[in-house]
Amino acid sequence: MIYISHGEKGGVGKSRLAMVLIDYLLKQNTRQVVLIEGDKSGQDVGERYADIVETGFINLNRPDHIQEAFSSLGNWIEKNGEGKDVVINLPGQASDTLDKFADLLAATMEMAGQKLAVFYSLGTLDLHVTNLVESMKIGLMSVVPLERQVVIMSEATGSMDQFAWARSDARATYIKAGGQEGFMPKLLPSALDTRMGGLPGPYSAFLGNDSPFSLTDRGLLFRWLKSAHEVVAKGVSHE
């Protein structure tokens, strides 16, 4: 499976979604997990999972060189992704590249025996709803079935009522058709989130008795991670 953490330009939670997704997939322990970081200037997910999962760094933020970006991505997956779960963490500008060859990517992955799943992390504005709807019409969201796509709103970005998507006609239509969405919880208190962000490895690895966190902090981390896993599980194939 190819899992793509897609969405708006920076700050909407794409990297956090990718981190939680990898944690969830590792916990399932059904297939080897590999990671593609889509921008060498933003290696936050790669740094967290260094020495845990195989990682490729491919510049997918190349709207003026779409064919080269596609070739690099396809070649890496062909060489390293067979029989594995591949998580692609997209940079902020990647929609300008990937959405433009969505049909080609889907067809190529099908030829390679891979299926696509897309998590789309939203911002709060009307413009962000417009961008999502565009992806649903002609971009990456348009080439995957509803059971393998999830619209993500993040509590770190805003409360549910702050998202234009939550009150849009587009959302009502999407949900009526069977579309999926999730609200990614925020890890609180913020001091725990900050400390957690500075430590490498899967979130789940810090729940045991050998964790550097106190019992109380582990309880908070466990509750948050359980809810976060439930969000990403919506788009994960268990075939």
Rank of each mutant, 00 (worst) to 15 (best):
A172S: 14
A156E: 11
L132P: 03
R171L: 05
S142V: 05
H128V: 01
G139F: 09
Q162S: 15
A164I: 00
A164H: 09
L140N: 03
A166L: 07
Q149Y: 00
H128Q: 14
I138F: 09
V150W: 01
S154G: 12
D126A: 13
G123Q: 03
A156M: 11
F163A: 02
A156V: 12
N131Y: 12
V150F: 00
K137A: 10
P145L: 08
L146F: 09
Y174L: 08
N131D: 12
S154W: 00
Y174M: 05
S168H: 07
V133Q: 10
Y174T: 09
F119W: 10
T124L: 08
T124D: 01
F163P: 04
R167T: 13
S154K: 04
V129Y: 03
V150D: 00
M136K: 09
M160Q: 11
S159T: 15
Q149L: 03
E147K: 14
R148F: 08
E134V: 09
D169T: 13
L127V: 11
E147H: 15
A164T: 02
E147D: 15
G139I: 10
F119I: 07
L146R: 11
L125F: 05
D169I: 13
V144T: 12
I175L: 15
L122H: 01
I175W: 07
W165D: 00
M141C: 12
E155M: 05
K137H: 11
L140Y: 07
V143Y: 03
E155Y: 01
S168K: 04
D161S: 14
L125M: 12
A164W: 00
I138R: 12
L146I: 09
S168V: 08
V150G: 04
S142K: 10
E134W: 10
A170H: 11
A156I: 08
A166K: 04
A166R: 09
Y174G: 08
A156L: 08
V151I: 15
S154A: 11
E155D: 11
M136W: 06
V151M: 03
L127G: 05
L125A: 14
M153F: 00
A172P: 04
G158N: 05
M136S: 10
I138E: 06
A164R: 08
D161W: 05
M136V: 04
R171Y: 04
A172R: 15
A164G: 05
A172D: 13
